[in-house]
């Protein structure tokens, strides 16, 4: 046993030394072979019906309720690109916290993509159930981003908060969560680009533009009346309605290759 163990260690050490050497010799070209260098940027244009969406601006629902957003955040995760032949490229560690109050978050950069022509995109609004049950995370998923429920573990998939004179306490607060079974609120969305194509090339950085219409949170088929529903803070039917309404307002616009 001891002998085997020592041999294992020796082998491991050799391996390690070999890998050290490789690292030292590695050139940009060698790295390119290892990790695909294609990339694109997802441009997220937020609107409220025909108006640009901005925090603290006044908007009206189609039921005549007035509102101002003070917080407008959601998770965009698990980005996948699909080719015409159906083959799928999955972006590893694909977690973005989109925050209207943080302009740099509105242009997520997707990197490490193999060259090719892609015909559709898939992503999730919310966080997959796996990361909801996998303990302490980092980056966009760190608990200190305050997009996490502490009393009943799980990510807040989307957080829309603000003021409205029609709300009983003059404020509304929608924290959408729930990731399991019937309470699952995360939404997987697919958008085909046809007739456009996302051309991923080593030397380019295309822009894929999506539009998000925040009015749909309140105005979709199953409208939400702020006066009657000023607070949604737990998984369930209302949380799902908020996020389903929200994602119904997400549309593919166009691609600048």
């Amino acid at each position: 046993m001891k002998k085997k163990f020592l041999m294992f260690l020796a082998a491991a050490t050799l391996l390690t030394m070999a890998s050290c050497k490789k690292d030292e010799e590695s050139t940009p070209d060698a790295e390119d072979i290892a990790i695909p260098s294609g990339q694109f940027k997802l441009e997220l244009e937020h609107q409220y019906a025909d108006l640009p969406l901005a925090l603290n601006n006044t908007y009206f629902t189609n039921q005549g309720e007035e509102l101002q957003f003070q917080n407008f955040k959601y998770y965009l995760t698990n980005v996948k690109l699909i080719k015409a032949d159906g083959s799928v490229w999955s972006h590893p560690e694909s977690y973005f916290l989109i925050d209207l109050g943080n302009p740099s978050s509105l242009l997520p950069s997707i990197t490490g993509i193999p060259e090719g022509d892609y015909t559709s995109i898939q992503f999730m609004i919310g966080v997959d159930s796996t990361r909801n049950v996998s303990g302490a995370q980092t980056g966009a998923l760190a608990v200190s981003n305050n997009m996490f429920w502490t009393w009943s573990t799980g990510y807040i998939m989307a957080k829309f908060e603000g003021t409205s004179p029609q709300a009983p306490g003059s404020t509304f607060s929608y924290h959408v969560g729930g990731f399991q079974g019937v309470l699952a609120s995360q939404q997987v969305l697919n958008f085909a680009f046809a007739p456009e194509v996302l051309m991923i090339r080593k030397s380019t950085n295309p822009l894929l533009k999506m539009s998000i219409d925040a009015q749909r949170i309140f105005n979709n088929d199953q409208g939400i009346n702020i006066h009657d529903n000023p607070t949604v803070h737990q998984p369930g039917m209302m949380a799902k309605r908020v996020i389903q309404n929200f994602v119904s307002g997400i549309e593919f616009e166009h691609i600048h290759n």
Partner: peptide
């Protein structure tokens, strides 16, 4: 309500009736 030992301490640290702090 808490599904993971790594996440568990966030609850008492941030609860307004316990340690009332932010991460």
């Amino acid at each position: 309500g808490i599904n993971h030992i790594e996440i568990m301490p966030v609850a008492p640290i941030t609860s307004p009736i316990e340690m009332k702090e932010t991460m």
